[in-house]
Amino acid sequence: MYNFEFEKPETVADAVAALGAEDAQALGGGQTLIPTLKQRLASPAVLVSLKGISEMQGICTANDGALCIGGATNHATVATEGGAYPALAATAAHIGDPAVRNRGTIGGSLANNDPSACYPAAALGSGATIVTNTREIAADDYFQGMFTTALEEGEIITEVRFPVPEKANYQKFLQPASRFALVGVFVAKYADGVRVAITGASNDGVFRWSEAEAALSANFAPEALDGLSLSGDDMISDLHGTGAYRAHLCAVMTKRAVAAAS
């Protein structure tokens, strides 16, 4: 780890100001950033912790019924207090291990946009709104490829708003070593249609499977997916599975998510 300055502001405004410094880097729960620093793969001059900002903590329900989660809320809190959206709480309950869940934050996960992370699938699959210090971004516009998002330099995720669906479920097939998602599928049924978001599989990061969404919007049942498949050509191929295997798992896990949705 290289030396850096450490700031822990108590307001979003102070955090934004601190992030204006040269080579400043926001720090959420640090579950990706700290190991990266330890390996000397990043050398920020200033780390700005977002953990001390009370207005970014906690969970509430908006007037329209959406579940609103503060950007600095950790996964364990979502797992235990996000019961208004059971599938989301269940997703959070299975991210990493207890240490990760008690440190990692939703804002940190979405800002990092790891191609195998769980929260991007939940946010995209729910059509969530990513609220920052400057604007509101629809999930469909937010995710722009692996480790790439619509966030501008110094922009902070202050809140994430999840419309609560009629039914939803997340199915994660574990990569045996890291236990990240080898393939993770988030299915959510709303009054105006079904959303299917897949993480872990694509070289372009989290994506929506539109054919499956159309079929499930017409008939929300596993059989509706019969005959549908994805191509493995643009999918991640590594030590743990080929693109073809991941494409196959996408269909299997989508069916299981539909069957398990509640």
Binding site: P176, A177, S178, L239
Partner: peptide, 24 residues
């Protein structure tokens, strides 16, 4: 039998150089 695999690529780079890829 089920999990562990120390793998190199054709250039001799160790692919399973951490617990992210070496399954204990």
């Amino acid at each position: 039998a089920l999990l562990e695999n120390c793998a190199y690529d054709e250039n001799g780079q160790l692919l399973s150089a951490s617990y992210m890829d070496y399954a204990m």
